[in-house]
Design a protein around this nucleic acid. Structure first.
Lengths: 244, 244
DNA sequence: CATTGCCAGTACGAAAACGAACACAGCGCG
DNA sequence: CGCGCTGTGTTCGTTTTCGTACTGGCAATG
């Protein structure tokens, strides 16, 4: 048994390692739109996300920002602390209510040293996180707003239960670094294609296959890499087999 | 002494580890525009770049491609092999003549297990490579062609000796995933600002400070992170203290 | 020295995205 | 129940970038 743990990384670990991590884990929560940090210096612990989703943002100045990555139940916040780095380049923002298991970075690093399973998992995670950043770079360079929005919605859908994503056009425009009006436009195109339905502060996924078609090559490869190297139940077709 | 080795990663390692790596290293070269791979399956070895620069490309289809990262004397090609992954998502292309030291991935991984110095260096490298991908994602989302071109030229300048960069507008347009005509336009603006000079198949950096100003927040942070975590002689002001 | 191929410059209309507004609707709150 | 806030729809003109094409120059080659 995985002991009611939702986080994928913890679930794929052997029972012994999972037990050791859970032994000194603390359950924490973040409110929607809250900045997700951890510890006074901000890098003393790692958050295994249990539910909700966190955006990895790059912000150079007010109004000059973009999302570069996304983390949910399949990952953790604070990877740099495990890679011998104190990460100052990114900001983590909860896009929904987020629940997570907090473990000190030191204890994870200790376990990396003693457990080959944990060590290999962290290495593969580093690779997959980098692949996601690279995929975002590719998408931002080569795809229009509509495709990038479709990609974003798919990635959010992979990480959230049900088909509803609660956020405003304004938040989306910040992440994709485009105008809010451009989001409204693109949303209408997605709605016209019967791919999603929108209401005030809520987007409902209606036809995932259509979204994938619209996202084109901007979505899929990095996610497949994650499934292949970290693992996920492929039953649902997408990344997220959200437990009840 | 570092024994005439130019690669930064090898230079920052303790003499013992450097010696062990060099003991079974083989010097290899790649011609300009050549695909940089290594071994039959493509992932059995690691290339410590000695000179020249390699583009990390993402290619979904002919004409649908973008550069997501750049590697020179400061890094290595084949990081995924050290992260327990077989990387199939990226293609590595030599943008200049490239010389490198080839070491089997297995021997580096063995050294990671026995040497904490090597292990920590690889972890930090993984972090910095991810930071570069993220910086590219940010630049592609939030900056125009002129700034992105300035950023690219700066990154190339950091990795090449002298102020000359030999490549065509066509190659640049492929990397930035824009029209060739847009590169010509942006180049003219950079020339107008006295930042660079262009001739047939050659760009000459004329005023690095002006380029940095034009690149704005798209350039600098990831590079500083690299310097801070991996190390570089800060003497030259930029990343590259290219040996004679 | 002439031919050939690559490379930069330039032109055109079209499409996409921009910045900055303003109008309206849903919804919570007093 | 009405007020006000927030979020969405929509507008304007403008700028950037696109796709495509044609031109002319430089350079290597025979």
């Amino acid at each position: 048994m995985t002991g009611g743990v939702h986080n994928l990384l913890l679930r794929v670990l052997p029972e012994r390692e999972r037990g050791l991590l859970l032994a000194n884990a603390e359950r924490v929560a973040f409110r929607k739109r809250e900045s997700v940090d951890c510890g006074p210096a901000g890098h003393e612990c790692v958050l295994f996300v249990e539910s909700g989703m966190v955006s990895v943002m790059r912000e150079a100045a007010p109004g000059l920002a973009a999302e570069v990555g996304m983390i949910g139940w399949e990952g953790l916040v604070g990877l740099p602390a495990l890679l011998d780095a104190d990460d100052t380049l990114h900001r983590y923002v909860a896009q929904t209510q987020v629940e997570a298991l907090r473990v000190s970075a030191a204890s994870v690093r200790a376990l990396m040293a003693s457990s080959e399973a944990v060590h290999a998992l962290v290495l593969r995670l580093a690779h997959c996180a980098a692949a996601q950043f690279a995929a975002t770079a590719f998408a931002n360079a080569a795809f229009n707003v509509e495709a990038r929005l479709a990609r974003w919605l798919l990635m959010a859908h992979d990480r959230l239960p049900g088909g509803d994503i609660a956020l405003t056009h304004d938040m989306l425009s910040t992440m994709l670094s485009v105008r809010r009006a451009s989001i409204t436009l693109a949303m209408h195109e997605l709605e016209g294609a019967q791919a999603v339905r929108g209401s005030r502060g809520l987007v409902t996924i209606r036809d995932r296959a259509k979204l994938i078609a619209i996202a084109g090559a901007s979505y899929g490869e990095a996610e497949a890499e994650y499934r292949r190297l970290i693992g996920a139940t492929p039953a649902t077709g997408h990344l997220a087999p959200m437990p009840a």
